[in-house]
């Protein structure tokens, strides 16, 4: 006997992701899923971004007073969560014990021990991997992909899935450009061929270059999404 099924293999993940999305919306959160290969600078970007967005204007912060939470995903160790804790952000570590990506159920489980009240923006730092996280929605508003120039300018076409899914591309380690053969123009051209709507920022987490523009974008998106969420 033949049975016509037509069932999305990832539907179990997608339906929990929708539950997470509902919870994020109830709390008025703007949620960014940060995806990159290992060592591209996800944690470094957060270490630089959090103080810029969260320090109050009275203390010299430009944007000021934005309350940030971070869910850290790693196969093992709490090293990243320890780094984030120093910024003052609310943080929880998920250890996937081998799994190459976060899935929506891991996020749902972690939220039992992670209060969302009072937060404005939630960053979810995925496991370092340019392939699998593209398939697993977590309930985020946007996916952000980080590519560091030392990885090479051929990566967008080699990993098209994530570059198509992402709303924003952060090209990190821009200060190292003179020491590599990487062409930022090629990264931009080929990324935009895959996804013409991609917002691209060149930054160096080491020197701080370009982080202003990125933070402005995050803040503007936060406003847009919060307004949309309130109307729904």
């Amino acid at each position: 006997m033949k049975i016509k099924v037509v069932s999305n293999i990832l539907k179990a993940n997608d339906s929990i992701a929708e539950e997470n999305r509902g919870l994020f919306k109830e709390n008025g959160l703007f949620v960014i899923n940060l995806i990159s290969s290992p060592g591209a600078g996800k944690t470094s970007l957060l270490e630089k971004t959090i103080p810029l967005l969260s320090s109050p204007p009275s203390k010299g912060g430009k944007w000021g007073g934005i309350s940030i939470g971070v869910i850290e995903g790693d196969i093992a160790t709490t090293r990243d969560a320890e780094r984030i804790e120093k910024t003052g952000a609310r943080v929880i570590q998920i250890n996937t014990n081998g799994a190459c990506h976060l899935d929506s159920n891991m996020i749902r489980t972690s939220l039992r021990d992670f209060p969302l009240n009072g937060l404005d923006i939630l960053f979810i730092e995925n496991v370092g991997n340019l392939v699998c996280p593209a398939n697993f929605n977590l309930g985020e508003d946007v996916k952000a992909v980080i590519l560091s120039i030392t990885e090479g300018d051929d990566k967008p076409k080699k990993y098209p899935g994530i570059f198509r899914e992402a709303r924003v591309l952060i090209i990190n380690k821009a200060d190292l450009l003179p020491y590599t053969d990487c062409s930022i123009d090629k990264i931009k051209k080929e990324s935009l061929e895959i996804n013409p709507d991609l917002n691209i920022f060149e930054v160096s987490c080491r020197s701080g270059e370009g982080l202003d523009r990125w933070c402005n974008w995050v803040k503007a998106q936060k406003k847009t999404y919060s307004a949309t969420n309130l109307h729904e």
Binding site: M1, I3, K4, V5, V6, S7, N8, I9, L10, N135
Partner: peptide
């Protein structure tokens, strides 16, 4: 990425 059909007994 989906299961399209099955053949069963």
């Amino acid at each position: 990425l989906f299961v399209d059909e099955l053949e069963v007994e």
